[in-house]
Design a protein around this nucleic acid. Structure first.
Lengths: 126, 126
DNA sequence: TTTTTTTTTGCAATTTAGTTGCATTATTTT
DNA sequence: AAAATAATGCAACTAAATTGCAAAAAAAAA
């Protein structure tokens, strides 16, 4: 699919991810932008931004969707071999720069994996 | 909370996990046991069996809940340092016996993690 | 065993994330 | 400017999970 038109809504959403590389949950975006666009639009644009390799998505601990900016992704391939870290204290979620390698598993072929790490972030560590 | 009474419904559910150690999704259980108990009961009993350390839960790729038998868990502590493997071919999900160690992450304290690996299981590998 | 207390269950209603169809509006192409 | 195409809003819908409450079942007390 991919983004075709740079509409007002697309620009607003892109802007949300321009600040830092912290991940944002879909529900947060829907609430934050409720006066500017419909939730359906949020879902659809995020979907396309992911297809375009500008964002990538993953599921938080409760199974809800989060999005974050991509660093080295393209239309054809998402480099999702990184983990996501959720701070149990402040709730902030971000991408870890560490690239994980999943060890070989006997008699199985590993295609993809999803790793969500939870703990305390640098700001919340005493 | 924990299990207090060994009711008929509890026995039926325990029985579902007695066979092998393959994980079962909540929706599968609800459908499979629809003639024997209400879905609310399924949710509630699974919840208690997890509290009791008999089952542990995790989220599948779509964010839906799965349960599997515990091996070394107790009421107070779940030894969830293992990954779950979902076969993209047959859909089967099971616990990997390999215990993963998440490497140290600079300036962060890691408390828990969730690792879902997807690929091809031993039965589905040619 | 019978009565009383407490827990469990079923049912219906509710919540919430996410999706879909369709008419309207905006953007791009001609 | 007109025509073609894509994006948006809205309402309705789907599905997983939760909640309140009355009825039923299990355990404890008598």
């Amino acid at each position: 699919m991919g983004i075709i038109r740079k509409t007002k809504s697309v620009k607003i959403l892109l802007n949300e991810f321009s600040a830092d590389s912290t991940a944002i949950s879909v529900t947060t975006l829907i609430e934050r932008l409720s006066s500017e666009m419909n939730k359906t639009t949020v879902y659809r644009i995020l979907d396309k931004l992911e297809d375009d390799g500008f964002l990538h998505s993953f599921l938080g601990k409760n199974g809800h969707k989060w999005y974050a900016k991509c660093n080295n992704c393209s239309k054809s391939k998402h480099y999702d071999t990184h983990a996501h870290f959720q701070c149990l204290n402040c709730g902030k979620v971000d991408c870890l720069t560490t690239n994980f390698t999943i060890p070989e598993i006997p008699n199985r072929r590993v295609d993809v994996f999803q790793l969500l790490v939870q703990g305390s972030c640098e700001d919340c560590l005493v």
